[in-house]
Design a protein around this nucleic acid. Structure first.
Lengths: 132, 132
DNA sequence: CCGCCTTTTTACGTTAAAGTCAATAGATCT
DNA sequence: AGATCTATTGACTTTAACGTAAAAAGGCGG
């Protein structure tokens, strides 16, 4: 039942522009089929777009995202290629773990700032609600 | 005992260029003191630089990082300002939590790819080591 | 078949975040 | 003091990731 998506459907779903999708295509990140000149995106293409946007949210460049996505579909028969793939995976995992630590730290700091702000609000309007 | 850091010390410590640090200064992200024309960075400046780099690793723009850092030092006496601060904190926290979820998903997918790769390596060289 | 609307192409513009280069200005070694 | 080194400033360039505008090509409702 191979359904297709039009470019505008996807731009609405993901809140991006057609320019963006065509740019990603020019960069080789997605390769929708054509009916005449019109682009037809498969569910697989849609998934790739989701992966791209997720990568972007994490601060990866499109080049990095491309490499990352490249790992998924890859079935490199050769042993050397497999070792290389494993190395890439390890490297990417390290980056992600570092980002996790960075997030933890930032969240902790935000909590501190929040606590300070709450304390100052108490000072300004003592006995905030009617309890007590 | 107020120690100072020179610009080159910091570029070496954080593996960035002097151009980068001066750029951050021009953007108002750090404001080192001067001895003549020479820049002198305090431990506080050094901390701010660490925060900037951490923000960048998480994919935040310098403008966003600036806002984030601005929250730390801020002691806005006014109640309205405090509410605004709380809102900003909430928004930033949401972003960070989303990034956390994104990372989890990506890590899971990497594991899958890795498992597949390991399986194929087994196929290529059965009975890898001498056990059994 | 005509007019209208969307899509595609092509080309140039823009913004953020630096990189690169040249000209000075201090600082340092001898 | 002269030579050498490092730091600063200012100007111009670059790269990634799109934005914007204009022209041509399809598709479709009447």
């Amino acid at each position: 039942m191979q359904r297709y998506f039009t470019i505008t459907q996807l731009t609405q779903e993901f809140d991006i522009t057609t320019r963006t999708l065509r740019f990603y295509e020019a960069q080789g990140l997605v390769t929708p089929q054509r009916r005449g000149r019109q682009r037809l995106y498969t569910p697989g293409d849609r998934t790739r777009i989701k992966l791209i946007l997720r990568g972007k949210r994490l601060g990866f460049s499109l080049a990095e995202v491309k490499e990352l996505i490249g790992m998924y579909g890859s079935a490199p028969g050769e042993a050397g290629q497999l070792r290389l793939l494993m190395e890439k995976i390890a490297a990417r995992r390290e980056e992600l773990l570092e980002k996790q630590r960075d997030i933890e730290l930032t969240l902790l700091e935000l909590e501190e700032v929040e606590a300070g702000a709450l304390a100052r609000m108490e000072e300004l309007s003592p006995v905030t609600s009617e309890e007590r």
